[in-house]
Nucleic acid binder design. Structure first.
Length: 489
RNA sequence: GUCCCUAUCGUCUAGCCCGGCCUAGGACACCGCCCUUUCACGGCGGCGACACGGGUUCGAAUCCCGUUGGGGACGCCA
């Protein structure tokens, strides 16, 4: 009885790419839905590209999304987890080398002494003849004597690709057939003994007893090579599932340099991790339950089924992401929203330390229905913490430069000053009573007051924000606006 | 160039495997109306797609072939 073991094996190249996040999510979901194990392995064999801060940045991305791993390398205060480590490819070099040389001993691979120059010449020749470059096989059948004669000459190790065809039985794409002629005898060990990617992944997947390889379909044409290696090395062949990649809004491969390629870009812009998870899952999978589009990680781990995965690539759509984020913000409790929004407000230099937790919860609550991203809250609440320095020009024309403007503000001032109870309900009642008595439009009274209190034409509901602002401040701001209006006409 | 994958509204998709229930359903976006104290939210309605061409069949979005479009792979990168 074999339990599912799958993995995400990113190369730490600076941050968690949105595409990597998608693959990680689906691996995670597959493992969790099957009661299996999810492994994180760092493919950090490309020495120049691996920096420790890159590793940390990548793990931070996973943590933010809530994707945890059962086995993986040490990270932060977490020790290495799992019995089949190490989980950093760079620490398995000797193992890879030994496996490569084992293939040589078994004659499934061979030493190749061709120089880089020779190969470059072959490649140029192939280009000139407009045919794909394939290794010539010059060193394929060297005799032991010929090899001995090379002495200490440096060599690479090439895999001896067998004749015939290789079929990838892909869980998503179905069976995909390749003629082995498409593949030349590819290199598996560099002259310095380091493994090439293909050997390293296969050795790692084999030794870590990975049962399901779920990855981007950019690897589909690499898979025959991997299957040949699995077989040659005598490892159990995992099941493959190749998922379509995430395209940018223009329909191109999501470039590493593009903003938004880093999942933490979205965090920094005020998107919830719940939103990203929900959005990314929608990009590659649909639920049995038709039309449903809200999912939490916890729900997904029960709902996920591999046969509902899509086969074609999907574009990233910012508009839909915004909408989804707004929906997720509305699902938060006000306390939770408050806690998420406070650091953002602080980062803008606004000091909230004078307010009670209850007050701040109220503040978050009255903005909850209005903001598409967490960051948007700043514009909705800054007037609570600073004086109104200026009025929005357009709104000023509309509410402060009318013949009745002074009258509106005078009414506002009178009602607010006279308010016996400074609550949303009491204020609302007072305004409504005024409207009934005088026939003035409620909107005029409200919008003039809003502009006076906030300086803006948009924001939370007037009575809600007034209650939080406090009577004294509100009355003072109305009075000040009234003075201002008198200077306008 | 060679090989591989893919193809339903502008976007994400349901339906395709097991042809008829499809005058193709939903969501985002867009437009209009309603609600309303602004903005948003919400409600109602509208616009809008089976890439093309051949087959197979009584009947095809659904099956087959081809074309075209899109993506990917062809490293001593991962």
């Amino acid at each position: 009885m074999s339990t599912v073991r799958c993995r995400i094996a990113p190369s730490p190249s600076g941050f968690l790419h949105i595409g990597t996040a998608k693959m990680a999510l689906f691996n995670w979901l597959f493992a969790r839905s099957q009661g299996g194990t999810f492994v994180l392995r760092l493919e950090d064999t490309d020495a120049e590209r691996t920096e420790e801060e890159y590793v940390a940045a990548m793990c931070e991305g996973f943590k933010w999304l809530g994707i945890d791993w059962d086995e993986g390398p040490p990270f932060g205060d977490e020790p290495e987890k799992g019995a089949l480590g190490p989980y950093r490819q760079s620490q398995r070099r000797d193992q890879h080398h030994a496996e490569g040389m084992r293939l040589v001993a078994e004659d499934k691979a061979y030493r190749c002494f061709c120089s880089k120059e020779e190969l470059d010449a072959d490649r140029a020749q192939a280009d000139a003849e407009k045919r794909p470059f394939r290794y010539s096989g010059r060193c394929r059948n060297l005799t032991p004597e010929e090899i001995a004669a090379k002495g200490e000459a440096s060599f690479v190790v090439r895999f001896r690709v067998p004749e015939g065809e290789t079929v990838v039985e892909d869980l998503v794409q179905g069976p995909v057939k390749f003629n082995n002629k498409e593949f030349d005898d590819f290199i598996i060990l560099k002259p310095n003994g380091d493994p090439i990617f293909h050997l390293a992944v296969v050795a790692d997947d084999g030794l870590m007893k990975i049962t399901h390889v779920v990855r981007g379909d950019d690897h589909l044409t690499n898979t025959p090579r991997h299957i040949m290696l699995f077989n040659a090395l005598g490892y159990a062949l995992p099941t493959f599932a190749h998922l379509p990649m995430v395209l940018d809004e223009a329909g191109k491969k999501f470039s590493k340099r593009m903003h938004g390629a880093n999942v933490l870009d979205w965090r920094d812009e005020g998107y919830l991790p719940e939103t990203l998870i929900n959005y990314v899952v929608m990009l590659g999978w649909t639920s049995e339950e038709e039309g449903r589009e809200f999912f939490t990680l916890e729900e997904l781990r029960h709902l996920f089924s591999i046969n509902r995965l899509n086969k074609s690539a999907a574009r990233f759509d910012r508009k839909k992401l915004d909408w989804l984020n707004g929906q997720h913000i509305r699902m938060l409790t006000p306390e939770n929203l408050r806690d998420r929004v406070l650091p953002i407000i602080a980062a803008k230099g606004i000091d909230t330390s004078g307010k009670s937790p209850e007050w701040l919860t109220q503040m978050a609550s009255i903005c909850q229905e209005k903001i598409p991203t967490l960051n948007n809250i700043v514009d909705y609440i800054d007037f609570f913490f600073s004086e109104v320095e200026s009025y929005d020009p357009k709104a000023e024309n509309k509410y402060f430069r009318q013949a009745e403007s002074a009258a509106w503000l005078e009414a506002d001032l009178r009602m607010m000053s006279a308010a016996d109870a400074w609550t949303h309900d009491a204020l609302k009642a007072a305004f409504e009573k005024e409207v009934e008595a005088t026939g003035v439009k409620l909107g005029s009274l409200v919008n003039a007051a809003r502009l006076a209190l906030t300086g803006k034409p948009v924001g939370p509901g007037l009575f809600e924000l007034a209650e939080l602002l406090g009577k004294e401040t509100a009355v003072a701001r109305i009075a000040r606006a009234l003075e201002h209006v008198k200077t306008l006409s």
